[in-house]
Simulated assay, not measured.
Amino acid sequence: MIAGILGGMGPAATAEFYAKLVARTAAERDQDHLRVAIWADPTVPDRVAAVLDGSTDPYPALLAGAEKLRDLGANLIAIPCHTAHFFLNRLAAESGVPFVDMIAETADYLAGRTGPVGLLGTRGTIAAGLYQRGVPGVEWTVPSETGQRNVDAAVAAVKRGDLAGGAEHFDRALADVDAPLSVLACTELPLVAGQAAGVLDPTDLLADAMIRRCGGKPVDARPSG
Rank of each mutant, 00 (worst) to 15 (best):
A107S: 15
I103D: 00
V177N: 03
P60S: 10
G8W: 07
V48K: 04
P42D: 04
E28N: 15
D30P: 02
G147D: 04
D57K: 11
M102D: 00
F17W: 09
L63G: 09
H85E: 08
L191A: 06
L189C: 08
G7V: 08
V44C: 10
C214W: 00
A66W: 04
E94Q: 15
A127P: 04
G96Q: 13
L119M: 08
G198Y: 03
A40N: 10
D152H: 15
G166H: 10
A23R: 15
G161C: 13
D176H: 09
G137R: 13
R133A: 15
A15Q: 10
D101E: 02
R47Y: 13
T14R: 05
A128L: 04
T43E: 10
L200S: 02
D53V: 07
R47I: 14
V36R: 08
T125C: 09
M1R: 13
H85V: 04
G115L: 14
D46I: 11
Q132D: 00
L52G: 05
R160M: 12
A175T: 08
L62C: 12
P218T: 01
L181W: 05
I2A: 11
A185N: 09
D220I: 06
V117R: 01
R160K: 14
A49P: 00
N150Y: 12
A84E: 06
K20W: 00
G165Y: 13
V100C: 01
D108K: 15
H33L: 08
F17D: 04
L76Q: 04
D46F: 09
L72V: 13
L206S: 02
A111N: 14
L21T: 03
G8S: 12
T14F: 05
A196H: 12
R123M: 07
E16S: 15
L34Q: 07
D108N: 11
A196D: 10
P116C: 07
C186P: 06
E105S: 00
V151W: 03
P116E: 09
R47E: 11
V117M: 03
E28V: 14
G137S: 11
L181K: 06
F170P: 00
S55G: 14
S182D: 01
T25V: 09
P190A: 04
T125K: 01
V155C: 05
W39K: 03
A84G: 08
F86M: 12
A92W: 04
D171S: 15
L181S: 04
L206H: 01
K20V: 00
R123W: 01
I211N: 02
S182C: 11
A185F: 10
L34H: 07
E168K: 12
T122C: 05
G137Q: 12
A19C: 11
N89S: 15
V135G: 02
H82K: 03
E67D: 11
